[in-house]
Nucleic acid binder design. Structure first.
Length: 129
DNA sequence: GCCATGACGTTCC
DNA sequence: GGGAACGCCATGG
């Protein structure tokens, strides 16, 4: 397995219980700023018997990106709720409160960033349709 | 080796 | 606040 993946997993393991981190932050801490997509790849490649708290990794909008109807997304929400992470009415996590490391997040820009992920979902939706 | 794709992000309009 | 374009890195065809 590539060392990048190992670094990513190592960083994810450092996320404390009850906290969440974004793909971008993970990529940055793993030494590859901008490689947020690769983080998603690494997590999707996780074996079943892993000790990586993948559910603590979410996107910059504070939401669970992949297929909201997918069972994995439901599981993720359940695991986070079990750890005390609350979801806002819109279904997003307040990164200013639960983000890790906390100083890396700015609630002001978070609301602006959430719009970014809408394009991909729309594009994917269009291609798959 | 080029092209398309994806659990994403930042910037510009 | 919402939408579109571009960038990023690794993988699979």
């Amino acid at each position: 397995m590539n060392p990048f993946y190992h670094r990513i997993y190592r960083v994810v393991r450092h996320i404390p219980k009850g906290r969440v981190a974004t793909y971008g932050i993970i990529a940055r801490l793993a030494g590859r700023p901008g490689a947020a997509r690769t983080v998603g790849w690494a997590l999707s490649a996780l074996p079943e018997d892993n000790d990586v708290p993948w559910w603590r990794v979410i996107n910059a909008a504070g939401r669970i990106s992949f297929s909201g109807s997918d069972h994995s997304a439901v599981l993720q929400r359940a695991l986070l709720l079990r750890e005390g992470v609350r979801f806002a009415p819109g279904g997003a996590v307040n990164l200013g409160t639960y983000g890790w490391p906390a100083e890396a997040y700015d609630t002001a820009v978070a609301s602006h960033k959430r719009a970014a992920s809408t394009r991909r979902s729309r594009r994917l939706k269009g291609l798959r349709t």
